[in-house]
C-alpha cells in the first residue's frame, strides 16, 4: 500500500501529471453537472454525435495546420450543438437520424482527410489518440491547462447560479416559459456549454468515449437519489471521483487514461444500481 502511495507521489512531482489530474477532474465535474440536464431532457445521444463531429473538425484543423485546433473545433461544435438542440424540439425534422448522418459523416471525412494530407508520419497513432484519448491529456501545455480551468470554472459557476432556472426548464419548459423565463436563451446556453464540455472532455477520454463522461455519473446518481439536488450533487461528486481514480489508475497500471476513467464509471454505475435496488424497494 505504501508502495502505491510512493508511486503516486513520485508521479505527482511531474508538472504534466499534476496538470492532467487537475484538468481531468475539473472536466469530469462539468460533464457530470450538465450530464444531468442532457440525460433528463433525453438528449444523451447529442453528446455522442457532437464528439464525432468534433473529431472531423479536429482533423480539418490538423490538416490545415492550425496552431491551436481548439479555435476551429470549439466554434464548429458549438454551432452544431445549437442547431441540434433546436432540431430536437422541432418534430418535423428527424433529429436523431440527421445527427447520425452528420456524426458518422464527420468521422469518415475526418479520417480520409488525415490520410490524404497527413500532418505527421504516424496517422493511425494520432487517430487512435484522438478517438480514445491515449496521451493528449499528459501533453497539455500550461496555456491549455489555464484555458481548460477557466472554461471549467465558468461552466460550474454558471450551473450553480442558474440552478433553479435550469431545474424549472428541465422539468417543464412550457411552464417555465409561462413564468417569463427565456427558455430559448437558456437552451442555447446549454447547447454551447455542452459543446465546450465535449471538446474539453475529448482531451481527457478521446472523442469516442466522451459521452460516457456525460452520461454515466448522472445515470448512476439517479439510481440512488430521489431529489434533483441529490442527483446533481451525487453526479458531480461521482463524476469527479471516478475521473480521479481513473487517472491515478491509468498512471499506476500504465493503461490509457480514457478507457480507465470510463471503466471506473461503469463499476460505479453497477455499484449504484445494486445499492439503488437495495435501498429503494
Amino acid at each position: 500500500m505504501s508502495d502505491l502511495f510512493s508511486v503516486i507521489q513520485y508521479y505527482f512531482t511531474f508538472d504534466f501529471v499534476r496538470y492532467a489530474f487537475l484538468v481531468g477532474t475539473l472536466i469530469a465535474l462539468c460533464s457530470a453537472l450538465f450530464g444531468v440536464i442532457l440525460v433528463l431532457k433525453r438528449f444523451s445521444f447529442i453528446g455522442d454525435g457532437l464528439s464525432h463531429t468534433a473529431f472531423g473538425a479536429l482533423a480539418v484543423a490538423t490538416v490545415l495546420r492550425v496552431s491551436n485546433p481548439l479555435y476551429v473545433v470549439l466554434p464548429v461544435t458549438a454551432v452544431l450543438a445549437v442547431l441540434l438542440l433546436k432540431a430536437g424540439q422541432n418534430r418535423k425534422i428527424k433529429g436523431d437520424a440527421s445527427l447520425a448522418m452528420v456524426s458518422v459523416g464527420a468521422l469518415a471525412v475526418g479520417y480520409l482527410l488525415l490520410n490524404i494530407l497527413p500532418a505527421s508520419t504516424n496517422v493511425s497513432g494520432d487517430v487512435c489518440g484522438t478517438l480514445f484519448g491515449a496521451t493528449s491529456i499528459l501533453t497539455l501545455s500550461k496555456a491549455d491547462v489555464l484555458l481548460c480551468m477557466a472554461l471549467a470554472l465558468t461552466v460550474t459557476v454558471l450551473f450553480v447560479v442558474l440552478y433553479n432556472r435550469i431545474f424549472s426548464i428541465t422539468f417543464d419548459e412550457n411552464f417555465a416559459r409561462s413564468m417569463g423565463i427565456h427558455t430559448g436563451a437558456y437552451n442555447t446556453i446549454v447547447a454551447i456549454v455542452t459543446a465546450v464540455i465535449i471538446v474539453l472532455a475529448m482531451n481527457l477520454v478521446g472523442s469516442l468515449l466522451v459521452s460516457a463522461l456525460v452520461v454515466f455519473p448522472a445515470l448512476s446518481a439517479m439510481r440512488l437519489f430521489r431529489s434533483f439536488r441529490g442527483v446533481t450533487l451525487g453526479s458531480a461528486v461521482l463524476g469527479t471521483l471516478c475521473a480521479a481514480i481513473g487517472i491515478l489508475g491509468s498512471i499506476i497500471l500504465s493503461v490509457p487514461v480514457g478507457p480507465a476513467v470510463v471503466a471506473v464509471n461503469i463499476i460505479a454505475f453497477l455499484l449504484f444500481f445494486v445499492l439503488g435496488k437495495a435501498f429503494n424497494r
Binding site: L40, V160, V161, L162, Y163, N164, R165, F167, S168, F171, D172, F175, A176, M179, G180, I181, M222, F225, R226, S227, F228, R229, G230, V231
Partner: peptide
C-alpha cells in the same frame, strides 16, 4: 423525473423573484 415534491412546488416561485439566483 427525479425530484422531490418540495423542489417542484418551489420552482413555481421563480416568477416571484427578480434577479436573485436562489
Amino acid at each position: 423525473f427525479p425530484a422531490t415534491v418540495r423542489e417542484i412546488v418551489l420552482s413555481g416561485c421563480i416568477a416571484r423573484y427578480g434577479k436573485q439566483p436562489f
